[in-house]
Design a binder for these strands. Structure first.
Lengths: 139, 139
DNA sequence: TTATGTGCAAAGCATTTGCACGCTT
DNA sequence: AAGCGTGCAAATGCTTTGCACATAA
């Protein structure tokens, strides 16, 4: 179970990959923000701690981290995807009027996940969930 | 409750928007495919029934349809978003190894949706859900 | 020492924008 | 007749790729 940049770092090595300053800078950027970020935002934050890092590296590293399950892709709104550490097991609840965004804990959905595994035969590793609606103020 | 291109068409007019051949071509393309499509795929399918339709129109129309809740945005895999008629109330279950994709019915989630509305005070209108895992064959 | 991972620079595309015209209402 | 919505063409800018070099192991 993934849980922090340091822990992911050791996982990366354990799986036989190299631990580079670029990968750490990106993991730290995501961790410090604690939020979902656009590739450009990740580039800017990572640049602060590691000047010289380039955008191609951001994209290649994100692909690498997603493939290995350390980072998750999220679609909240608009036509852009965002990235966040997989450790933040939560989902999104967005108001379509004012944009208010709340988090939904992972545990909350666990009963459903269990039921789903039983019926479909799948063994679930990730999920990407966004609910959209009107918040208490806007409805 | 949205349910077919024809029904969406009347909704569009009811809300004071214009019903154009382009909007219908896009709705029909999504309906006939019955699946989630990339903007380019929508462009190609819509072009078949309405030669001359352009890509900017695809994007503007998709934005319009999404804003009005007729179409939903989905992220299944990779770095691209796909679109589908909101009427197809289902979600995705994807195998990360072989890519097998199954559908999850909307009704499944209804109890959770009800509970969620009660707890958060939100009034839900849409949801975008993708579960990823290993299917029965790959695990 | 080795070959993985990054920087650099350029190419490739998806997406957006401005403006004039056509078409729905 | 009026103005919303589209076509056209170009601009934008995100994302990808090839290649040589640096560096983690």
């Amino acid at each position: 179970m993934v849980c922090s940049p340091a822990h992911i770092a050791s996982q990366i090595r354990e799986r036989g990959f190299r631990l580079t300053p670029q990968r750490m800078a990106i993991l730290n950027a995501l961790h410090e923000s604690g939020d979902h970020l656009l590739p450009l935002e990740i580039f800017e934050k990572a640049s602060a701690s590691l000047p010289g890092i380039t955008e191609p590296t951001i994209y290649r590293t994100l692909d690498f981290l997603v493939e290995n399950g350390f980072v998750s892709v999220t679609h909240v709104r608009g036509r852009r995807l965002e990235y966040e550490l997989t450790q933040h097991k939560h989902h999104h609840l967005v108001c379509s009027v004012c944009g208010l965004e709340e988090e939904l804990s992972h545990e909350w959905l666990q009963p459903f996940r269990d039921q789903l595994e039983q019926i479909t035969g799948f063994s679930l590793t990730e999920d990407q969930i966004t609910f959209t609606g009107l918040c208490r103020h806007c409805k």
